[in-house]
Simulated assay, not measured.
Amino acid sequence: MPMTIPSTDWSDYQAFLAIARTGQLAKAARLLGVDPTTTGRRLRRLEAALSTTLFEQTRSGQELTEAGETLLQSVEQMAAAAGQISERAVAGDGLTGTLRISASEGFGCWFLARHLTDFQARHPHLAIDLVASSGFLSPSRREADVAIMLSRPRKGPLVAHKLSDYTLGLYASRDYLAARPAPEVPADLDEGHALVGYIPDLVYAPELRYLDEIHAGLQATIRSPSITAQHSLVASGAGLGVLPCFMAESDPRLVRVLAECRITRSFWFVTHQDIRKLPRVTQFRQWLDETVQLGEDVLMPGRRAPMDSAA
Rank of each mutant, 00 (worst) to 15 (best):
G92V: 04
D93G: 12
D93H: 14
D93K: 13
G94S: 01
L95H: 04
G97T: 01
G97I: 01
T98I: 06
L99W: 02
L99R: 01
R100D: 01
R100M: 07
R100Q: 08
I101A: 00
A103Y: 00
F107E: 04
G108T: 02
C109H: 13
W110Y: 13
F111M: 10
F111R: 06
L112A: 04
A113Y: 04
A113I: 00
A113C: 03
R114T: 10
R114L: 15
R114A: 13
R114H: 11
H115Q: 07
H115W: 05
H115G: 02
L116G: 05
L116P: 03
T117N: 12
D118Q: 12
D118V: 11
F119D: 04
F119E: 02
Q120N: 03
A121W: 01
A121G: 05
R122G: 11
H123A: 04
H123I: 01
H125G: 06
H125I: 00
A127T: 09
A127Y: 08
I128Y: 05
I128F: 08
I128A: 03
D129K: 02
L130K: 08
V131P: 02
S133R: 15
F136P: 00
S138Y: 06
S138F: 05
S138A: 11
P139Q: 01
P139V: 09
S140A: 15
S140L: 15
R141I: 05
R141Q: 14
R141A: 14
R141M: 14
A144K: 02
A144S: 15
V146P: 08
I148Y: 09
M149L: 14
L150S: 10
L150N: 06
L150P: 01
S151M: 10
S151V: 05
S151K: 13
R152G: 11
R152V: 14
R152I: 12
R154V: 14
R154M: 14
R154C: 12
K155S: 15
K155V: 09
K155L: 15
G156I: 05
G156T: 09
G156E: 06
V159P: 04
H161I: 04
K162R: 15
K162M: 12
K162I: 05
S164A: 13
S164G: 06
Y166C: 09
Y166D: 12
T167R: 09
L168G: 06
G169T: 13
G169K: 10
L170T: 10
L170G: 07
Y171C: 07
Y171G: 08
A172S: 02
A172T: 02
S173F: 10
R174M: 10
D175A: 11
Y176S: 05
Y176D: 03
L177N: 03
A178S: 15
A178P: 01
